[in-house]
């Protein structure tokens, strides 16, 4: 997407923005990383391809503290996160120039591997993907290589932007809550076994917390110096034992369901399931709510109605 790069460069050159927040080309097509670009020279390594999955909105918290405007490239789902941060006064809209970039669903190299491809040497981001491997060339369909979250995309409309570049394509094909419903239907023992299997993989690397745009406290409970943070997984503090549920609760009502937590988890834990469970409950109990859709809206956990459902009613499966 040369267009995004050209436009960003033009805005950088004419002084509209001081820096550009985008993706820098990695060693391969599939590993671009978030980066700031401050000069024309820097901008040579700028890239926007279909592997640029990282949500850049969180970096705007720090960028908002810097001098001058920052140009940020936001995909449709990232714009929700940005809007949510805006409503929490964590980012400065005045200091932000948003290019809403088009999205046709983002790819993941993990999914290419999952499709059974081994010894990957290079890959492009076309449909279908042309993969060069140690054992010859092969093809993987775009859909198979797409991130799981893109199959349940909440829409390709940007909720906040200064200008839009590039086309989007609807990629949602599945029900967002299907997996949550499947777990809800299990018996308590099965549920517990399911989560035991998933959560026991956790190495407490904090990647999910660091990437999450909703996790933006300046001082985090998981960084307490009361326990040894160097060896988290081995530590028996309360925060460590209850990490996953605490993390999920801290973002309840504010999570836009961008799916970054599950994308970055090196252990492949489906962390988004916790967030989605909260979203599903909020939707059924307190009315449809999409965090970040409206920067003026009151969050479901900072508001109430006099006739909200009682916990005991909900426990029995009721909603009123």
């Amino acid at each position: 997407m040369q267009e995004v790069k050209n436009r960003a460069l033009a805005l950088l050159k004419d002084g509209t923005v001081k820096r550009v927040l985008g993706w820098r080309i990695g060693e391969n097509t599939y590993d671009p990383e978030p980066a700031f670009f401050e000069s024309e020279e820097d901008m040579q390594t700028f890239v926007y391809n279909n592997f640029c999955a990282a949500n850049l909105s969180k970096y705007m918290i720090e960028a908002s503290k810097l001098e001058g405007k920052t140009l940020v490239c936001l995909k449709p789902c990232d714009s929700y996160s940005f809007n949510q941060l805006l409503s929490e006064h964590r980012v400065d809209r005045e200091k932000t120039y948003i290019i809403g970039v088009g999205c046709k669903g983002k790819l993941s190299i993990e999914n290419v591997k999952r499709a059974g491809v081994k010894g990957i040497l290079s890959v492009n981001d076309t449909d279908p993907l042309q993969v060069e491997t140690l054992y010859g060339n092969t093809e993987v369909s775009y859909k198979a290589a797409m991130l799981d979250r893109c199959h349940v995309c909440k829409g390709k409309e940007h909720v906040v932007y200064d200008e839009l570049i590039g086309e989007s394509e609807d990629t949602s094909t599945a029900d967002r809550f299907a997996q949550v419903q499947m777990i809800e239907a299990m018996s308590p023992a099965e549920k517990f076994a399911f989560f035991q299997k998933e959560l026991s993989k956790c190495i407490r690397c904090n990647a999910c917390r660091n990437v999450c745009p909703a996790c933006s406290c300046r001082k985090c409970v998981f960084d307490s110096d009361k326990f040894d943070s160097a060896q988290k997984a081995n530590v028996d503090s309360f925060e460590e034992k209850m990490f996953h549920i605490i993390r999920a609760f801290h973002v309840a009502g504010r999570c836009t369901d961008c799916g970054e937590c599950s994308r970055v988890c090196p252990q492949g834990i489906p962390l988004h399931l916790f967030n989605r469970k909260f979203i599903k409950d909020i939707n059924t109990l307190y009315g449809e709510y999409q965090a970040g859709a409206d920067a003026e809206a009151r969050g479901p956990l900072t508001s109430f109605t006099a006739d909200d459902a009682e916990p005991s009613v909900v426990a029995e499966g009721g909603t009123k």
Binding site: A252, F274, F278, L301, F304, D308
Partner: peptide, 16 residues
Amino acid sequence: RRRMTLLFSMLDFMGV
């Protein structure tokens, strides 16, 4: 009430 409703529902979700 809202907080507890969500928390209890989550505990149930996790099989507790």
